[in-house]
Protein backbone atom coordinates (compact mmCIF):
# COMPACT_ATOMS: atom_id res chain seq x y z
CA UNK A 1 0.00 0.00 0.00
CA UNK A 2 2.73 2.41 1.03
CA UNK A 3 4.74 1.27 -1.93
CA UNK A 4 1.85 1.98 -4.20
CA UNK A 5 1.46 5.48 -2.89
CA UNK A 6 5.14 6.17 -3.18
CA UNK A 7 5.11 5.90 -6.94
CA UNK A 8 2.23 8.29 -7.15
CA UNK A 9 3.53 10.77 -4.68
CA UNK A 10 4.68 13.26 -7.30
CA UNK A 11 1.21 13.21 -8.76
CA UNK A 12 -0.28 13.93 -5.39
CA UNK A 13 2.03 16.92 -5.13
CA UNK A 14 0.95 18.16 -8.49
CA UNK A 15 -2.67 17.66 -7.54
CA UNK A 16 -1.99 19.57 -4.34
CA UNK A 17 -0.57 22.42 -6.37
CA UNK A 18 -3.69 22.48 -8.51
CA UNK A 19 -5.81 22.31 -5.39
CA UNK A 20 -4.04 25.28 -3.87
CA UNK A 21 -4.41 27.19 -7.12
CA UNK A 22 -8.09 26.43 -7.20
CA UNK A 23 -8.51 27.45 -3.59
CA UNK A 24 -6.73 30.76 -4.15
CA UNK A 25 -8.96 31.33 -7.15
CA UNK A 26 -12.15 30.64 -5.24
CA UNK A 27 -11.12 32.83 -2.32
CA UNK A 28 -9.98 35.73 -4.52
CA UNK A 29 -13.16 35.46 -6.48
CA UNK A 30 -15.22 35.69 -3.32
CA UNK A 31 -13.33 38.78 -2.23
CA UNK A 32 -13.19 40.59 -5.54
CA UNK A 33 -16.69 40.23 -6.96
CA UNK A 34 -18.53 43.50 -6.38
CA UNK A 35 -21.01 43.08 -3.55
CA UNK A 36 -24.05 44.15 -5.54
CA UNK A 37 -23.24 42.05 -8.57
CA UNK A 38 -26.13 39.82 -9.53
CA UNK A 39 -28.74 41.50 -7.36
CA UNK A 40 -30.89 42.32 -10.38
CA UNK A 41 -29.26 40.31 -13.13
CA UNK A 42 -25.81 39.59 -14.41
CA UNK A 43 -24.46 43.04 -13.69
CA UNK A 44 -23.63 45.43 -10.88
CA UNK A 45 -26.94 46.70 -9.56
CA UNK A 46 -25.32 50.03 -8.75
CA UNK A 47 -24.62 50.52 -12.45
CA UNK A 48 -28.27 51.55 -12.67
CA UNK A 49 -27.58 54.34 -10.21
CA UNK A 50 -24.42 55.30 -12.08
CA UNK A 51 -26.51 55.68 -15.18
CA UNK A 52 -29.31 57.60 -13.52
CA UNK A 53 -27.09 60.03 -11.64
CA UNK A 54 -25.62 61.69 -14.70
CA UNK A 55 -25.91 65.47 -14.66
CA UNK A 56 -28.82 67.00 -16.55
CA UNK A 57 -28.11 69.56 -19.24
CA UNK A 58 -31.56 70.05 -20.75
CA UNK A 59 -34.16 71.12 -18.23
CA UNK A 60 -37.22 70.30 -20.30
CA UNK A 61 -39.85 72.79 -21.37
CA UNK A 62 -42.13 72.27 -18.40
CA UNK A 63 -39.49 73.87 -16.20
CA UNK A 64 -39.01 76.86 -18.52
CA UNK A 65 -42.70 77.51 -18.80
CA UNK A 66 -43.20 77.64 -15.06
CA UNK A 67 -41.23 80.86 -14.86
CA UNK A 68 -41.52 82.18 -18.38
CA UNK A 69 -45.25 81.94 -18.48
CA UNK A 70 -45.41 85.03 -20.65
CA UNK A 71 -43.43 83.35 -23.39
CA UNK A 72 -45.45 80.21 -22.92
CA UNK A 73 -48.64 82.16 -23.40
CA UNK A 74 -47.24 83.90 -26.43
CA UNK A 75 -46.38 80.57 -27.99
CA UNK A 76 -49.51 78.76 -26.95
CA UNK A 77 -51.34 79.25 -30.22
CA UNK A 78 -48.40 79.66 -32.57
CA UNK A 79 -47.15 77.22 -35.16
CA UNK A 80 -44.10 76.77 -32.95
CA UNK A 81 -46.05 75.70 -29.90
CA UNK A 82 -44.87 72.12 -30.08
CA UNK A 83 -41.21 73.09 -30.18
CA UNK A 84 -39.44 72.92 -26.85
CA UNK A 85 -37.71 76.06 -25.66
CA UNK A 86 -34.34 74.40 -25.56
CA UNK A 87 -34.55 73.36 -29.21
CA UNK A 88 -33.76 76.99 -29.94
CA UNK A 89 -32.22 78.23 -26.72
CA UNK A 90 -29.91 75.30 -26.15
CA UNK A 91 -29.45 73.34 -22.96
CA UNK A 92 -30.29 75.54 -20.00
CA UNK A 93 -30.63 73.29 -16.97
CA UNK A 94 -28.09 75.39 -15.10
CA UNK A 95 -30.21 78.45 -15.73
CA UNK A 96 -33.46 76.76 -14.78
CA UNK A 97 -31.81 75.51 -11.65
CA UNK A 98 -30.66 78.99 -10.73
CA UNK A 99 -31.68 81.84 -13.05
CA UNK A 100 -29.34 84.24 -11.37
CA UNK A 101 -26.33 82.09 -12.01
CA UNK A 102 -26.70 82.02 -15.75
CA UNK A 103 -28.30 84.70 -17.82
CA UNK A 104 -28.95 83.07 -21.18
CA UNK A 105 -27.95 84.83 -24.34
CA UNK A 106 -30.68 85.57 -26.81
CA UNK A 107 -30.09 83.26 -29.76
CA UNK A 108 -29.55 84.77 -33.16
CA UNK A 109 -32.71 84.00 -35.09
CA UNK A 110 -31.70 83.54 -38.72
CA UNK A 111 -29.33 80.56 -38.48
CA UNK A 112 -31.85 78.86 -36.23
CA UNK A 113 -34.75 79.37 -38.60
CA UNK A 114 -32.73 78.33 -41.60
CA UNK A 115 -31.59 75.12 -39.96
CA UNK A 116 -35.18 73.99 -39.79
CA UNK A 117 -36.88 75.82 -42.61
CA UNK A 118 -34.41 75.83 -45.46
CA UNK A 119 -35.87 74.06 -48.46
CA UNK A 120 -34.58 70.53 -48.95
CA UNK A 121 -35.90 67.79 -51.21
CA UNK A 122 -35.66 65.27 -48.44
CA UNK A 123 -37.87 67.20 -46.03
CA UNK A 124 -41.45 65.99 -45.89
CA UNK A 125 -43.83 67.93 -48.11
CA UNK A 126 -46.09 69.05 -45.27
CA UNK A 127 -43.33 71.03 -43.62
CA UNK A 128 -43.23 74.76 -44.53
CA UNK A 129 -39.90 75.59 -46.11
CA UNK A 130 -38.42 78.61 -47.85
CA UNK A 131 -35.38 79.32 -49.94
CA UNK A 132 -33.88 81.85 -47.51
CA UNK A 133 -32.12 84.06 -50.07
CA UNK A 134 -35.20 84.43 -52.20
CA UNK A 135 -37.60 84.64 -49.32
CA UNK A 136 -35.96 87.21 -47.07
CA UNK A 137 -33.55 88.85 -49.46
CA UNK A 138 -30.84 88.93 -46.86
CA UNK A 139 -32.93 90.32 -44.05
CA UNK A 140 -32.90 88.56 -40.71
CA UNK A 141 -35.87 86.29 -40.31
CA UNK A 142 -36.99 88.00 -37.12
CA UNK A 143 -37.36 91.27 -38.98
CA UNK A 144 -40.71 89.98 -40.08
CA UNK A 145 -41.38 86.84 -38.05
CA UNK A 146 -41.38 86.58 -34.31
CA UNK A 147 -39.48 83.49 -33.24
CA UNK A 148 -42.02 82.55 -30.61
CA UNK A 149 -44.97 83.09 -32.89
CA UNK A 150 -43.78 83.10 -36.48
CA UNK A 151 -47.14 83.12 -38.25
CA UNK A 152 -48.98 86.29 -39.06
CA UNK A 153 -52.55 85.40 -38.10
CA UNK A 154 -52.15 85.54 -34.36
CA UNK A 155 -49.74 88.47 -34.18
CA UNK A 156 -50.95 90.77 -31.50
CA UNK A 157 -48.66 91.84 -28.73
CA UNK A 158 -45.03 92.94 -28.94
CA UNK A 159 -43.70 89.40 -28.57
Amino acid sequence: MRELFKDKEHLVRMAGLFGVGLLVFVVLRGVLIPADFGDLGHYRASALDDNSSVELRFAGRAACELCHDDVAAERAKSAHRSIACEACHGALAVHADNPEAVFPERPEATPLCVACHEANVTKPAWFPTVIPDEHSEGEACDECHMPHAPGFEEVGSDG
Binding site: K6, D7, K8, E9, H10, L11, R13, M14, L17
Partner: peptide, 14 residues
Protein backbone atom coordinates in the same frame (compact mmCIF):
# COMPACT_ATOMS: atom_id res chain seq x y z
CA UNK B 1 10.14 18.13 -10.19
CA UNK B 2 8.05 19.35 -7.26
CA UNK B 3 10.69 18.00 -4.91
CA UNK B 4 10.10 14.47 -5.99
CA UNK B 5 13.04 12.27 -6.84
CA UNK B 6 11.14 9.20 -7.77
CA UNK B 7 11.70 7.87 -11.27
CA UNK B 8 11.20 4.25 -10.54
CA UNK B 9 10.00 2.26 -13.55
CA UNK B 10 6.63 1.90 -11.94
CA UNK B 11 6.21 5.63 -11.37
CA UNK B 12 7.25 6.30 -14.94
CA UNK B 13 4.77 3.77 -16.15
CA UNK B 14 2.05 5.53 -14.20
Amino acid sequence: ALGSDNISPRSLEI
